[in-house]
């Protein structure tokens, strides 16, 4: 039994400690966000946050997660109440097939949390590990810039 905390909730998982987080998220916790793309840490489709930092869940064994916080796409918002990054992606219609998008959203989330004023080239470099085959890149970039703006204004209003 390994205990992992996902989107704030602890879960007891009966899987070998070396099991990659991806399979536990998808099959045990029935969370669809993280996707299998390569299982090799090459494409970013499986990206989730661990302690608010992006990781490839396909090469992250659950044994290393005790006492750490895992956040998945589902932890950012719901269909009725999407989070700011999700909202920005929807507003920009930043998806074609959408298979890469959950990983993109998670990486973008981490970027915005750690560098809310990232420049265009910083955004592109930070997003480099995540692959998209449909060619949705320009919209994803637009969505990230929009989310940055929204979250900044939000925090300003919050401060008021």
């Amino acid at each position: 039994m390994t205990t992992i905390t996902v989107n704030g909730k602890p879960h007891q998982v009966d899987a070998a400690p070396s099991t990659p987080l991806l399979y536990v998220l998808r099959n045990d916790l029935k969370l669809n966000g993280a996707k299998f793309g390569c299982g090799l840490g090459q494409c970013g489709a499986c990206t989730v946050l661990v302690d608010r930092q992006p990781v490839y869940s396909c090469v992250t064994p659950i044994s290393v997660l005790e006492g750490r916080q895992v956040t998945t796409l589902e932890g950012l918002g719901t269909p009725d109440n999407p989070g700011p990054v999700q909202r920005a992606f929807i507003a920009e219609q930043a998806a074609q097939c959408g298979y890469c998008i959950p990983g993109m959203v998670m990486r973008a989330q981490a970027l915005i949390e750690h560098k809310p004023r990232a420049s265009e080239s910083e955004i592109r470099d930070y997003m480099a590990p995540s692959l998209c085959r449909c060619g949705t890149h320009m919209r994803i970039l637009r969505a990230i810039r929009r989310a940055m703006k929204d979250m900044r204004t939000a925090s300003v209003e919050g401060a008021r």
Binding site: N32, G33, E74, F89, I90, A95, G98, I101
Partner: peptide, 20 residues
């Protein structure tokens, strides 16, 4: 707006890969 995008953005069961 595309009808399939919100689900894909929030972890809905959107793909055959997601069937369980």
């Amino acid at each position: 707006a595309r009808v399939d995008i919100p689900g894909k953005l929030t972890g809905g069961e959107s793909y055959v890969q997601d069937m369980r």
